[in-house]
Amino acid sequence: MAHISPGGPPSPLSWETPAERADRNLLELLQELRVVQTGVQIVFAFLLGVAFTDRFLRLDTFERGTYVVTLLLTVVSSAVLATPVALHRGLFHRGAKIRIVAVSARFAEVGLVFLALALNGVVLLLMDVVLGLTAAVAVTAVTLILFTGLWFVLPRALRRPALEAPVEPR
């Protein structure tokens, strides 16, 4: 059954029903989250290991504060990025897949914000230890701009209809 969006052209996969589209979107989202969650776990493991090194005892107050905030941002990003899995488990077979996808997509976006902040916290901490605070702030500003541009600005820019190419059915 072809699905035509109200007031617009057919969706890119116009042969999908809304339920089929929700199934596909959820599977794609969960796969994306698996990849991102691995990165979060690596950052978290790194941060846990740092606290048990001899060098950790020599961190100054700013560096310890950066460490604590970064660790907590990593924990929050992990929790937020895992929420779609919990939603799927909790609402599975309840006819709420379209809603699960919509809410989960939001959680994924928020989780990416926390992950970007956590990764930049790691950069700030490491660059402060290696290069000093002034250089660390400069490098972190660059990486923050990089994440903002690639993860948030670029996807929104590509959503513009003029940039969308029609997708032909396979």
Rank of each mutant, 00 (worst) to 15 (best):
L47D: 02
L47R: 02
A51C: 10
A51F: 05
F52T: 13
F52D: 07
T53H: 05
D54W: 03
R55P: 01
R55E: 12
R55A: 13
F56H: 09
L57Q: 00
R58Y: 05
R58N: 01
R58T: 15
L59F: 12
T61L: 05
F62D: 05
E63T: 09
T66I: 14
T66C: 15
Y67S: 05
V68M: 13
V68Y: 09
V68D: 01
T70A: 11
L73Q: 06
V75L: 11
V75Q: 12
V76Y: 09
S78R: 10
S78M: 15
S78N: 14
A79K: 08
A79N: 04
A79Y: 08
V80M: 07
L81P: 03
L81F: 06
A82S: 05
A82W: 02
A82P: 00
A82V: 06
T83W: 03
P84T: 09
P84K: 11
A86F: 03
L87T: 09
L87K: 01
H88D: 08
H88Q: 14
L91D: 10
L91R: 06
F92A: 13
H93Q: 14
H93E: 08
R94N: 10
A96E: 15
A96V: 15
I98H: 15
R99F: 11
R99H: 12
R99G: 10
I100F: 02
I100D: 07
V101M: 07
A102K: 12
V103Q: 15
S104G: 15
A105V: 03
F107A: 10
F107V: 03
F107S: 08
A108E: 00
V110D: 02
G111N: 06
L112C: 08
L112H: 07
V113I: 15
F114N: 06
F114D: 10
F114E: 09
L115W: 04
L115T: 04
L115V: 04
A116Y: 10
A116S: 15
A116K: 13
A118P: 13
A118G: 15
A118I: 14
A118F: 07
L119F: 12
N120E: 13
N120V: 05
V122N: 03
V122Q: 04
V123G: 03
V123C: 04
V123L: 12
L124G: 14
L124S: 04
L125C: 08
L126N: 12
L126K: 11
D128S: 14
V130G: 04
L131W: 11
L131Y: 08
G132R: 06
G132M: 08
L133C: 06
T134P: 01
A135M: 03
A135W: 12
A135N: 07
A136F: 04
A136Y: 04
V137M: 10
V139S: 12
V139Q: 14
T140R: 11
A141Q: 03
A141S: 06
A141F: 05
V142M: 05
T143K: 00
T143R: 02
I145A: 05
I145F: 10
I145M: 12
L146Y: 09
F147Y: 15
F147A: 03
T148Q: 02
T148G: 00
G149Y: 01
G149V: 14
G149D: 12
G149R: 03
G149P: 00
L150E: 00
L150V: 00
